[in-house]
Design a binder for these strands. Sequence first.
DNA 1: GGAACTCGCCAC
DNA 2: AAACGTGGCGAGTTCC
Length: 473
Amino acid sequence: MQVVPYNPEGYDLLHKGMIAFSEIQQTGVRIDIDYCHQAHDNLTKEIQVQEEKLYKHKEIKEWKKKYKSKFNLKSSKQMIDILFNEFEYEPLKFTDTVGPNGERTPSTDKEALEAMGLPFTDDLLRKRKLEKLKDTYISNIITETYNGFVYPFLNLHTARTFRSSANSPNVQNIPVRDEESNEIVRRAFIPRDGNYLIEADYGGVEIKGASWNNHDPTLLEYLRNPKTADMHSDFMQLIFCLNHYNSKCAGEKTLRKGTKNGFTFPQFYGDYYGNNAVSLWNWANLKGKKIKKKDGLVLDSGITVGENLIKHKIRTFDQFLNHVKKIEDNMWNKRFTVYRDWKEKTYKWYTKHGYLTSLSGVTFQGIMGKNDAVNYPIQSVSFHCLLWSAIRLVELIKKYKMKTRIVFQIHDSVIGDCPKNEKKDFYELLQQVMCHEIKDFWDFIITPLELEADCSELNGNWSKMKTEMEYIH
DNA sequence: GGAACTCGCCAC
DNA sequence: AAACGTGGCGAGTTCC
């Protein structure tokens, strides 16, 4: 029998967390149910139109002929047969499943179909998107709505990391990045009469959680000096061979974001240069065998990314791959060596003892790979900042007899339903709890914490949020 | 007709 | 040598 340490702090946090989440669930989130029915109808009609459009393509005609009554647009199995056997298109991507003799199944996901770029695949992707919005989101929200409210479960006993999960409905995966999807689904979530919806986020808390674990001096330097140091623009300059960063140049700002999402964060999650190079190469529009001068965004200097890379003797994908490999090497073996050593040390400790603990006092058991072992403690403590804050907010809202209610949370943010006349008080409470009290409670928090509050219009909805408050302490 | 699986896709 | 962490959920497929 494996004996792991019992830590009352971790127990207490999860225990109080479950009670707070239970109260939050019983509070419920208001839903604009009339809007939902209307959106449902609109989507149904649009899907119908899209389907008719789809049936005009030769691929579908062939598909119907072959499968007759078994024809099913949603069967990836049938689609693979039609596209890659009947029409002999080249499979560009494969799923992870490998057969007993090493056979691989062609992928028909968004990325694969986008790469094919046929009129048929484009129309199909549009239909898939609309169906996702209708079936996964709007329909489910309608099913879960009772007297104008949903009561999502917020669970603390399902994730291996002691993060939370949500269901019925899952309020933690509502579209945000894609503008059209955001507007269609988030529009359904509304405040109570006379209220605002306010979403308060911890900024960059996961990378901060990493620094509290590994105490890497380079990383701490970045996080303690957000005004003067910027990790993402530094890596952007390395990747795209620049020696400056101008945040006012649209192209360079986009490159910074692309580097953050395509290199730096994946690296922190345990990814490697091979994947990074492919995603950056495609993302930056450098497709083709050789980079051309006109490729890519326009830089502050007036030339393109493509021209600049050529100047630095990067013309082919292989050269770019090697370049990204060098930056990875530089990242871990020059810049973040203490972080690198912490990863090794943590995994070794796990292989010896069979478990790990987080700064917040929970214990991870079970089979873990190296990436798991170094990610769990980071993910965990980052979410636990939000958890601690949510517990405290619920407690203080009660104590101060406020009318504001916490209605759900999404890993690093809490969503409040706040009366007009309590907005100022609520912002102050958020600052007090999320940036001050928590630092007094947990002395392992050795970087500033950043808080951003986005607010809806009065009697507005979740799709139109404006940043109203930013606070660092 | 349900369980267990795969695939696809949304969030952090 | 190998190579991205955590979830929920809809739909299809296969098996029992």
